[in-house]
Design a protein around this nucleic acid. Structure first.
Lengths: 362, 362
DNA sequence: CTGAAAGCGCTAACAG
DNA sequence: CTGTTAGCGCTTTCAG
């Protein structure tokens, strides 16, 4: 059975198609009785307006797109397993909450609230350019969570519709960049360590290869400089980036030369450091403070619970959607950016006492 | 600047619009030189094909929709807070992984793989019927994760396009039901408790109000009957549904009348029971086995780790997408259903030894 | 208040 | 191989 169209409804209701259309979009222009009649027929005919036709006529789609790369290992498929159901062993707690999910949540929520549809897309290993262009044809604006394709594609898109890049800034494109404010977040963390705990010597554990992590280190250096405290010239340990992780930390420990605080590139590294130190008989925070960054779930119930700065991924997604909607399909003409503040989560690993959260208390 | 269309491209390339169209969809029909020319012009003009127009002409959308209700507290907005950023206190570990995310992941993945776009929708507290109908107009098929609207709307939709209901079965509609196979999953659990651990007396802790939980109880009864073991007539304790949770459990404990195993309605209840018993000096699994159902993250690193049956939410989403795509826009004509098997996760709370997963091992 | 008619941008026969 | 043409279903002036 063919789907009912405006024509069908109009015919059975004894009116013109214009009236049917108006019934939906400008009800005030239609006499009550006619409107009711139309609605009644529409329901009887099971009429569902075609969005394609409406969008074509209007020149607007009413949908925003979120393009995200499939970067979480939990999500990935195993060889020969079509549905991604099987995972090697257990789910890795250290990856929750998944950034992509958080961003998606915020994006989605904002879109729904604004009455926009949400289109999700991503590369499936195949051609990212192709898929993002296809998406672009379906939406009024596009947010990219993780774009690994070429800049030129981006440039093309940014010319004809609003594009926002999330937590990623590949240069001076006419797009909106929405990212976490590492600067303020880590600054606050350092302030806390220095101000509240009187830390004199603070060292950084992390990679200088990953640009994100490198930035974190620089922010810390800068803040310590401002505070007039000793500034580390290099990470004291590369963390997982090293072939032998934490050997420098071990050396310091053996030499009884641990700093007051070890600020780590992220939570995962911080938890590993804490565990590693425990193995050496060093206690956190008693002997040394350790902090992370990101705000993964595991840091909430590790022992000690982890002091960290929390990435505002949900908020980032949310803002992206709002800003896109505001553009009403019009591209940005120059680079813009929004920094979203991170939240300092003060917990036990810096020496601040707080009740442990027991899993069993659920 | 107006967006380029096929007409623009055709004109500048000195060909007809049909040739432009063919260049994209039937490249073999176009001479190499012409094709290259068209592609070159298209790129120069920043041409992005309009999905609306294409879909309208084709009569197909190339997108599948997932409608889900915003039921997770973590997702919800606080009063006056537009972006859902602020959460009361910490994130609740006991809700991870979020079902909706898992389903979404599976759905998304399947769609991408099949080259289908994914449309996400949901009620934002406002009119669910309206939003679902709007969505329906934009897709070739619809999956509903949590439908709280009326059946008649469902019925209308199911008449004109394929609809699948996830983990929910409101009756004999011409739709596809995809849900977890409680039957086999819990059956296996019982088999394990009886077969491996020689459990004689098994009791159920949970509510009889929630239909899902009630079903779980019935499945357990049935299985025990089949095995010729004592069958509980009622849950021994209502769990959180009671005003005073676990009082019956407490009574049994005091009377030294604990069964061999307490099978709980879900993981959350199971973890709470374990904790409650610990408070009374009873050890799990030494004094009594306790099991859950759902497979939340917390059960992986609780002490003891939790034996449970894991809901296959990702797989459910995945199957839904595949089945929808197979219909190619055509509705189902009669009720169908697919049961997805749950996975028994044997851990410590039933007495099976396995290494504890330390959070700090991340 | 209602209707006629002109597109929206693209696809898919069908001719050439 | 390429061009012509007739829609796809809906919105929206502009007349009536």
């Amino acid at each position: 059975m063919r789907r009912a169209t405006v024509y069908d409804v109009a015919e059975r209701a004894g009116v013109s198609i214009a009236t049917v259309s108006c019934t939906y979009w400008q009800p005030s222009r239609v006499r009550e009785s006619t409107r009711l009649k139309v609605l009644e027929v529409a329901k009887r005919l099971n009429y569902i307006p075609s969005a394609s036709a409406r969008n074509l006529a209007r020149g607007r789609v009413g949908a925003l797109g979120l393009y995200s790369f499939d970067f979480c290992p939990v999500r990935s498929l195993e060889q020969g397993c079509e549905d991604g159901q099987e995972r090697e062993g257990e789910t890795d707690i250290c990856t929750y909450p998944l950034y992509a999910d958080e961003v998606e949540r915020g994006f989605q929520q904002a879109c729904w609230q604004m009455g926009q549809a949400v289109l999700l897309g991503g590369s499936t290993g195949s051609n990212p350019t192709r898929s993002v262009v296809d998406m672009a044809g379906r939406v009024d604006g596009l947010a990219l969570l993780s774009w690994l394709g070429d800049i030129s594609t981006l440039q093309r898109l940014a010319t004809i519709m609003p594009v926002v890049m999330l937590a990623q800034n590949p240069g001076d494109l006419p797009v909106l960049y929405v990212s976490a404010d590492n600067y303020a977040g880590l600054g606050e963390l350092i302030d806390h360590l220095v101000g509240v705990h009187g830390a004199k010597r603070i060292e950084y554990v992390g990679s200088m290869i990953d640009p994100e992590m490198r930035e974190r280190f620089h922010v810390i250096q800068e803040r310590l400089t401002q505070l007039g405290r000793p500034v580390p010239l290099m990470p004291v340990d590369e963390g997982f980036a090293a072939k032998q992780p934490f050997q420098s930390v071990k050396a310091m420990q053996l030499a009884r030369d641990l700093p007051d605080a070890l600020v780590c590139e992220n939570d995962q590294t911080a938890l590993a450091v804490i565990n590693f130190l425990r193995g050496l008989g060093t206690r956190v925070p008693d002997d040394v403070m350790v902090t992370g960054a990101d705000g993964i779930l595991a840091g909430q119930f590790s022992d000690p619970t982890l002091t960290t700065v929390q990435l505002p991924m949900q908020r980032i997604g949310n803002i992206a959607a709002h800003e896109l909607a505001r553009q009403e399909g019009k591209p940005w003409t120059k680079t813009k950016s929004v920094l979203v503040s991170e939240k300092l989560k003060i917990r036990q690993s810096c020496g601040c006492e707080r009740p442990v959260i027991h899993v069993s208390d659920c």
